[in-house]
Amino acid sequence: MTHSTWIYILIMIITTNLIRVIPLILIRKEIRNRFIRSFLYYVPYVTLAVMTFPAITEATNSPLAGAVALVTGIIAAWAGLSLFPVSVICCVVVLILEFFI
């Protein structure tokens, strides 16, 4: 490794907190630009989706278990369950399935 893990972490801390703080210091008015507002609106969902699949199938010992956890998680969240229960359900699905696979 040519890079230092501590420097990675420091850059992450500074950048992430600057993002949080800059609007509170600078932006006093509403963002009017429709494209920027729309872009910023979609970004969180697209990022999380891109990072979830296919990575979830690679995180588990069996790719199939990860895929089933994804589908079960989507159904659970669609049914209105919140963050914590959805996470638990995904874990349980993998735990059970990997007993059989």
């Binding site: 969180p44 969902y45 999380l48 989706a49 990072m51 979830t52 990575a55 979830i56 995180a59 588990t60 010992n61 069996s62 278990a65 990860g66 956890a69 994804l70 998680g73 989507i74 659970a76 969240a77 669609w78 209105g80 369950l81 919140s82 963050l83 959805v86 996470s87 638990v88 359900i89 995904c90 874990c91 349980v92 699905v93 993998v94 735990l95 990997e98």
Partner: peptide, 17 residues
């Protein structure tokens, strides 16, 4: 292996609603 998907479960719970 089972706990590794907890994080993804959270991501799913944020994007689905």
């Amino acid at each position: 292996s089972a706990l590794s998907v907890a994080l993804y479960g959270m991501f799913i719970a944020i994007i689905i609603p």
